[in-house]
C-alpha cells in the first residue's frame, strides 16, 4: 500500500502528467477536447482525469465496438487498439479528479436533490462516492455534459448498455433532467 503511494508520487513529481511514454504521447492528443490532465473547460465535454479505471475502460471499449452509442468517440476509438485504450483508462484514472463546482440556486438544488433519490444507491448522495468501480463520479462534472448523457440514456432509439441506468434515466420527469445535472455539477465532493 505504501509503495502504491510512493509510485504515484514519483510519477507526479516529474511534471504532473506522468508515467509511461507511449500512453502519455497518446493522452496528449486527448487534451485538445478533454483538457490538460483530463480537466475539461468546455461544458459539453466531460472531465475524465480521476474517473474510475474500470468505468473508463468499459465505456471506451464499448464505444470501439459500437456496443454503446456515441456521437463522435466511436469513430475515434476504432483507430486505437484495445491495449492502448486500456492503458489510457489506467493513465487517466491515476490523475486527480478535479471537480468543477458550478453553483445553482436553492430551488434547483432542492429539485435536484429530490429527483436524484433514485440515483443515490449507485452514485452516492452527491455523486462523489460511487458504489463500485464501474460507476463514474458525478460531483463537479459539467452540468451540460451530464444533461446530454441523460438525453442519450433516455432515448431508446440508440444503443446504451446498463439497463438499470437506462430505466432510471427514463423514470426522470422531463423537467427534472436539468435539475439533476445541475445538482451534481454543484457538488464539491
Amino acid at each position: 500500500m505504501k509503495l502504491h503511494i510512493a509510485v504515484a508520487l514519483a510519477g507526479m513529481a516529474f511534471t504532473g502528467i506522468a508515467l509511461a511514454g507511449p500512453t502519455e504521447d497518446l493522452a496528449r492528443t486527448c487534451n485538445a477536447c478533454h483538457g490538460v490532465n483530463g480537466v475539461s473547460v468546455g461544458p459539453s465535454m466531460p472531465s475524465i482525469g480521476g474517473l474510475p479505471e474500470a468505468h473508463l475502460k468499459n465505456v471506451m471499449l464499448q464505444w470501439k465496438t459500437d456496443e454503446r452509442y456515441s456521437a463522435t468517440m466511436g469513430r475515434h476509438f476504432k483507430g486505437y487498439t484495445e491495449a492502448e485504450l486500456s492503458a489510457l483508462a489506467t493513465y487517466y484514472s491515476k490523475l486527480p479528479y478535479v471537480p468543477t463546482v458550478q453553483k445553482a440556486d436553492d430551488k434547483i438544488m432542492a429539485k435536484g436533490k429530490e429527483a436524484t433519490d433514485r440515483c443515490e444507491t449507485c452514485h452516492g448522495a452527491t455523486g462523489g462516492e460511487p458504489d463500485d468501480a464501474e460507476t463514474p463520479k458525478l460531483n463537479g462534472q459539467w452540468a451540460q455534459y451530464l444533461e446530454l448523457e441523460l438525453m442519450k440514456y433516455r432515448n431508446d432509439a440508440v444503443k446504451m448498455p446498463h439497463k438499470k441506468m437506462r430505466n432510471n434515466a427514463k423514470k426522470l420527469a422531463d423537467e427534472d433532467v436539468a435539475a439533476v445535472a445541475e445538482f451534481y455539477a454543484a457538488q464539491p465532493k
Binding site: 487534451n31 485538445a32 477536447c33 468546455g42 459539453s44 456521437a71 455534459y145 438525453m151 432515448n155
Partner: peptide, 20 residues
C-alpha cells in the same frame, strides 16, 4: 439527437482547444 450532441460538442471542443 446526434446532430444536437455534435452542435454542443463543437462548442466544448472549441473551449478546450483554445485552452490547450
Amino acid at each position: 439527437m446526434q446532430r444536437k450532441l455534435e452542435s454542443e460538442y463543437c462548442i466544448g471542443w472549441f473551449k478546450n482547444i483554445m485552452a490547450d
